[in-house]
Computed example of a mutant assay.
Amino acid sequence: MTRLLLQKIENRVRILADLRELASAESLDSFTLVYTNILDHQPDCPPEVVEKLVALREGIPRKDAKEVVQECKEIYENSLVDGNPPKTGFVFGKVKSLTAPKGSLWRKLAQ
């Protein structure tokens, strides 16, 4: 019982570690690799998460940022089944700020 509970908790907090890894990625290839790993566990993680994190990072040239975002969008689109994620995760469907208009939480985090 305890082992099952521990595994359930680890699965729930894994996304936090994955997002930390995504936010601290050092190369463009790292962003796409980490994003692919996130989709394995949270298949409904939209590429806008990567877009927002890349925009918050200093030192990433605009051209490179656009390239990594485009690659992540393609990875996401290729993972869809009939236009939808294969399954719904427990995080991203509940994050309202991802669909909020400009000036949302992401912009506040960048300040």
Results as ranks from 00 to 15, higher is better:
65 A>I: 01
59 G>Q: 10
12 R>N: 00
27 S>Q: 05
48 E>F: 08
14 R>E: 04
3 R>N: 12
20 R>K: 12
51 E>M: 10
41 H>W: 05
37 N>E: 11
48 E>H: 07
32 T>M: 06
27 S>G: 09
72 C>Q: 04
56 L>A: 15
15 I>E: 03
17 A>N: 13
11 N>Y: 08
38 I>A: 09
33 L>Q: 05
35 Y>F: 15
36 T>V: 00
17 A>L: 12
32 T>V: 14
55 A>S: 15
45 C>L: 08
69 V>W: 11
65 A>R: 10
30 S>A: 15
31 F>S: 05
21 E>Q: 13
10 E>A: 12
39 L>D: 03
64 D>L: 08
53 L>N: 07
13 V>D: 01
71 E>Q: 12
43 P>V: 01
15 I>W: 10
54 V>W: 10
24 S>Q: 12
47 P>V: 03
64 D>A: 09
34 V>A: 08
28 L>Y: 03
79 S>C: 03
28 L>V: 03
25 A>D: 08
6 L>F: 11
65 A>S: 11
52 K>I: 15
23 A>T: 06
33 L>W: 03
77 E>I: 01
29 D>Q: 05
15 I>V: 15
25 A>E: 09
4 L>I: 07
22 L>R: 06
48 E>S: 14
64 D>Y: 03
23 A>S: 15
37 N>R: 15
20 R>V: 12
38 I>D: 02
36 T>L: 05
39 L>R: 07
77 E>L: 13
28 L>W: 04
40 D>S: 08
46 P>H: 15
59 G>S: 10
78 N>T: 01
35 Y>D: 06
45 C>V: 03
18 D>F: 09
26 E>L: 14
46 P>M: 11
42 Q>C: 09
46 P>T: 07
30 S>V: 00
46 P>Y: 14
79 S>Y: 01
2 T>M: 14
4 L>H: 12
72 C>G: 04
18 D>Y: 09
59 G>A: 11
46 P>D: 13
12 R>D: 00
60 I>G: 04
38 I>V: 14
13 V>C: 07
41 H>E: 02
77 E>Y: 06
